[in-house]
């Protein structure tokens, strides 16, 4: 987008999830995106076999946040040898839940007329950040106090050259909302909130010091294992 235009959330480029040699010639690459509040798995299917492929279907294993296909896989026509087709598969978050390791791991089964194939992929937790994740300021202060300090995780984010306002704007495109900003001893302290699709809240303090390319990120969340994934998202959003 141009100056002042929202650029939307960052989407990781597609990577190969299922190499053709492991799937009798079917190659699958993909990524995840949240577009206008709807989660999508974006897929490219390539037929590297010598015969036509058809009758595609997809299924997910139970996973940490209940991700499930919200409809069938829309492969419009049989896929000819050397042909690639691209599609977006809308996802719901009301599927069966089972805690995965890592938390953001997703096990997928894809079938076609030849066989059934399995692969695992990992989604950025930011696809689960909902649009109404701006916490009331009063609630933020109470919750921040309420979560004990030993549940606080701290991370450094290096080589970041945005000022705090630019960082805040970029994070908001990914549904990370700045609730308050204070400047103390030359450091901008941003207090931010995130809400996941399953109702889990994440509270964040981001410290940005003018001229210092290393940000300090402090994350408080009652589900402590979410913090590391939130850190990964900050790295991804702030550096792309």
């Amino acid at each position: 987008g141009g100056v002042g235009m929202p650029t939307g959330a960052y989407v990781v480029p597609k990577t190969i999830w299922l190499p053709a040699m492991k799937a009798k010639g079917l190659e699958i690459s993909g990524t995840f995106a949240r577009r206008a509040g709807v989660l999508h798995m974006e897929l490219s299917l390539t037929n590297k076999a010598m015969s036509v492929m058809s009758d595609f279907a997809v299924q997910f294993n139970r996973n940490s946040f209940g991700l499930a296909p919200a409809g069938p896989l829309q492969v419009v026509a049989p896929l000819n040898p050397n042909q690639t087709t691209e599609m977006g598969l809308p996802l719901s978050t009301v599927g069966p839940v089972m805690k995965m390791e890592p938390l953001n791991n997703l096990q997928v089964a894809v079938k076609n007329n030849i066989d059934v194939f399995y692969f695992s992929c990992q989604y950025p937790i930011s696809i689960l950040f909902v649009e109404d994740g701006k916490m009331e300021r009063q609630v933020f202060l109470a919750t921040w106090k309420d979560i004990p300090n030993d549940s606080e995780a701290q991370y450094q984010i290096k080589d970041c050259h945005l000022n705090s306002d630019a960082a805040s704007a970029r994070l908001q495109s990914s549904n990370i909302f700045t609730i308050a900003k204070r400047t103390v001893d030359g450091q901008d302290m941003l207090y931010q909130s995130i809400k996941l699709t399953n109702g889990i809240w994440v509270l964040v303090e981001l410290r940005v010091q003018t001229g210092n390319p290393t940000y300090m990120l402090s994350v408080k969340c009652r589900a402590a294992e979410v913090s590391q994934l939130v850190h990964q998202c900050y790295e991804m959003v702030l550096k792309n």
């Binding site: 300021r137 009063q138 202060l141 921040w144 308050a180 204070r182 103390v184 001893d185 450091q187 302290m189 207090y191 303090e205 402090s218």
Partner: peptide
Amino acid sequence: ELEDGLDEAFSRLAESRTNP
């Protein structure tokens, strides 16, 4: 008044985090 109180509370939080 509540808003003022919240502004003040965030200032205190930031201050306490920087100079504990």
